[in-house]
Design a binder for these strands. Structure first.
Lengths: 216, 216
DNA sequence: AGCCTTCAGATTGTATACAATATCCAGCAA
DNA sequence: TTGCTGGATATTGTATACAATCTGAAGGCT
């Protein structure tokens, strides 16, 4: 009823983020403001604001006066991101185990069911639902700073995933998701932390393997 | 020789951040762009960019079309931030224990010595050096995503600290700093994690205690 | 050749103009 | 009084103009 008009800068932000994460820009490709102006049909102002946010998100990098480019994530940094995520997701799961409400439980169950029902060939849908599941856990932790940090880290991971072209789930993924949910619903903090951390580690190992890096 | 001119938006960002963290704005105080324009003598453009960053940092909050205000941190959120920091600082210390270089070790030792030598009554200097010590540990972890996340969380904590008016160090602080450094230098990951987490918990307890007798 | 200088074109940083919303208060009706 | 309506005012969102800086190549010097 009182829908406020969508801001141009938000549209631009979403568009650019999706474009980066879908590989429509090459890693290290330079993004000129004027070029984007012509491409998107809006003025430089909202583009600059979107670029600013994306830079803080870690998806772009730039030096003042010299524009921005798509950030290149090194193998070392990818590894670093997963190390942090292992701990952070573990914390989120542990907190969710202790703090989740009935509504959280229902949402978690619903999201995971959807994920399990998704076609195993629809990579995009799987990624979307996997993301949603992890976000739901972070929400169920009822810890705002954690939620914000997790979202930030997720963006970086998304960039890693794209640049390393790891699209498929690990075979154990489904079972691990179930294990996490079970531990959370049972309010078993330590089990939740353990299973969530293991899940990240499993996936990280897959990514690292593809990168030709031996995991620590 | 190759000093690039300081950007106005950076100056504005630094100025506003310091002002917020020094209490020159009341919590929930509205920041009008035009007002800041007159106050700082620059145009709206760099002010808007600085405000955007501060909003993403969690120091300001705003709804589109309605400007921004200094974010009010509730007691619950303060507690939440410390819970996350406990884990994150623990991880940073553990990683630092395993990854620090000789240069890191020197810098850590130097910073802590400075902190110990600082006058116990100069709250500002103590805060600055305490911050520097914690940041050095995060740097010694050699994990860029972690460093970024820690910085983000630190900003929020700084806001909490200001709004709860906790300025003094806990008596055990000095000993705990030494214990952290010792564990890091000994490359004892678990001890580093434990001591760092304990340090955060000690301080968090102090903050929470003060929140119990004070309405924010 | 190799390196520096210089300058034109392109690009970003900042200021300002204009458009779209939101805020607030006077006035009125129930 | 309380609540609504309308419109003047103020504020934010976007576009554009202008200034400062960077880039890159042509031309001169050693």
């Amino acid at each position: 009823m009182f829908t406020r008009p969508t801001l141009i800068r938000e549209s631009v932000y979403d568009h650019l983020r999706d474009a980066i994460l879908n590989g429509e820009f090459q890693p290290a490709e330079r993004l000129g403001e004027v070029e984007l102006t012509e491409r998107l049909g809006v003025s430089r102002t909202p583009i600059r604001e979107a670029i600013g946010r994306l830079t803080q998100d870690g998806l772009l990098e730039g030096t003042p006066g010299r524009g921005v480019r798509v950030r290149v994530v090194s193998a070392v940094e990818a590894q670093s991101a997963y190390v942090v995520r292992e701990t952070l997701d573990g914390l989120a799961a542990a907190l969710a185990a202790s703090a989740h409400t009935d509504a959280d439980a229902g949402a978690l169950e619903a999201t995971l069911s959807e994920l399990e029902a998704a076609s195993s060939e629809d990579y995009r849908e799987q990624t979307r639902l996997d993301l949603a599941f992890h976000r739901r856990i972070a929400q169920a932790a009822h810890n705002l700073p954690l939620l914000d940090l997790a979202r930030d880290l997720e963006q970086r991971i998304a960039l890693v995933k794209h640049q390393t072209r790891i699209y498929n789930s690990h075979p154990q993924t489904a079972a691990q998701h179930r294990a996490i949910l079970k531990a959370v619903l049972a309010r078993d903090q330590e089990a939740a932390r353990r299973t969530a951390a293991l899940h990240v580690r499993t996936f990280a190992a897959l990514v690292m393997e593809n990168l030709g890096v031996q995991s620590v």
